[in-house]
Computed example of a mutant assay.
Amino acid sequence: MKENTKEIISYVFVGIMTTLVNYIVYFVLLMIHCHWLVANSISWFFAVIFAYYANKKYVFESQNDIKKELSSFVLLRFLTLIVENGCLYIFITLMHIQPMFSKLLVSFVTILSNYVLCKFKIFKKEGVYNG
Rank of each mutant, 00 (worst) to 15 (best):
V12R: 05
F13W: 12
V14I: 12
V14C: 11
I16E: 02
M17P: 14
M17T: 13
T18H: 09
N22P: 14
Y23N: 13
V25L: 12
Y26W: 07
Y26S: 00
Y26H: 07
F27S: 08
F27Y: 15
L29N: 04
L29R: 01
I32C: 03
C34H: 09
C34W: 12
H35M: 11
W36F: 05
A39Q: 09
N40Y: 00
I42H: 01
W44N: 00
F45Q: 13
F46C: 03
V48L: 11
I49D: 02
I49F: 14
F50E: 09
F50Y: 07
Y52P: 05
N55Y: 01
N55G: 12
N55K: 15
K56R: 13
K57R: 14
Y58N: 11
Y58F: 15
Y58V: 11
Q63C: 03
Q63T: 11
D65C: 04
I66V: 15
S72P: 01
F73D: 01
V74H: 02
L75G: 08
R77G: 08
F78G: 14
L79T: 15
T80S: 08
T80R: 04
T80N: 07
L81V: 07
V83R: 02
N85I: 08
N85W: 01
N85Y: 02
Y89K: 05
I90T: 04
I90V: 08
I90H: 02
I90P: 00
F91N: 04
I92L: 04
T93Q: 10
L94T: 00
M95S: 01
M95Q: 05
H96S: 09
P99A: 04
M100I: 13
K103Y: 13
L104E: 10
L105T: 03
L105G: 05
L105P: 05
F108H: 02
F108G: 15
T110L: 07
T110C: 09
L112A: 15
L112I: 12
S113H: 04
N114C: 10
Y115H: 11
V116N: 06
V116A: 14
F120C: 03
F120T: 14
K121E: 00
K121H: 12
I122N: 00
F123D: 09
K125L: 13
E126Y: 14
E126C: 04
G127H: 05
